[in-house]
C-alpha cells in the first residue's frame, strides 16, 4: 500500500464485494457525506441509503449504491459494512419503481403483522433512495 492511498473495503453480509487501494472515497454518512483520505481520524459512523463515490485521479471512478450500513474509518483504512450494494449504473429505473409499488402494497396488506410491516417499510425507504440517487448525480 502506498502512502497516499486508502484501503477501501466494501463488505456485504454474504461476501467481500470490493477491496482496493483508492485515492479517496466519499461515504454517505448519517450526518452528511464524508470523504476518506489517508490519515483520516479513526471514526465509526452509520451510513444512510445513498451512493458511495470512489475517486481516482481527481474524478469519480465508480459509484456504488448502498442501502445503509456502517463505516469504520482508520488512518489507512475505510471499511463499509453495507446492507445491499449495487453499482449505480446497474440499477434499472423501471424495476426500482416496480419494487417501490410492490413494497407499498405490502405495507397495505401487512395489517397487524409488525414483522411484515417493518420489512416492507425498509424496502420502501431503499427504493426511494435508489430513485433519488439515479436522479441526482453529485460529484463529477
Amino acid at each position: 500500500m502506498t502512502d497516499n492511498a486508502v484501503q477501501f473495503e466494501l463488505v456485504s453480509p454474504e461476501k467481500l464485494l470490493l477491496s482496493e487501494d483508492v485515492e479517496m472515497v466519499v461515504v454517505p454518512g448519517a450526518e452528511g457525506d464524508f470523504g476518506c483520505l489517508p490519515g483520516h481520524a479513526p471514526m465509526i459512523s452509520t451510513v444512510r441509503p445513498g451512493v458511495i463515490h470512489v475517486f481516482e485521479g481527481g474524478s469519480v471512478k465508480t459509484r456504488i449504491f448502498v442501502a445503509g450500513g456502517f463505516a469504520e474509518v482508520t488512518t489507512s483504512r475505510c471499511t463499509v459494512l453495507a446492507e445491499e450494494a449495487v453499482p449505480l449504473d446497474e440499477i434499472d429505473r423501471t424495476s426500482v419503481e416496480k419494487d417501490l409499488q410492490d413494497a407499498n402494497e405490502d405495507i397495505r396488506d401487512a395489517g397487524g403483522n409488525e414483522v411484515q410491516l417493518a420489512l416492507a417499510e425498509a424496502r420502501v425507504a431503499t427504493a426511494r433512495a435508489k430513485l433519488a440517487a439515479i436522479d441526482n448525480l453529485v460529484y463529477q
Partner: peptide
C-alpha cells in the same frame, strides 16, 4: 492501540 474512535452521530444512535 489505534486510539479511540470518533462516533457519528454518537455511540447510542450507532
Amino acid at each position: 492501540g489505534n486510539a479511540a474512535y470518533e462516533y457519528e452521530p454518537n455511540e447510542k444512535d450507532i
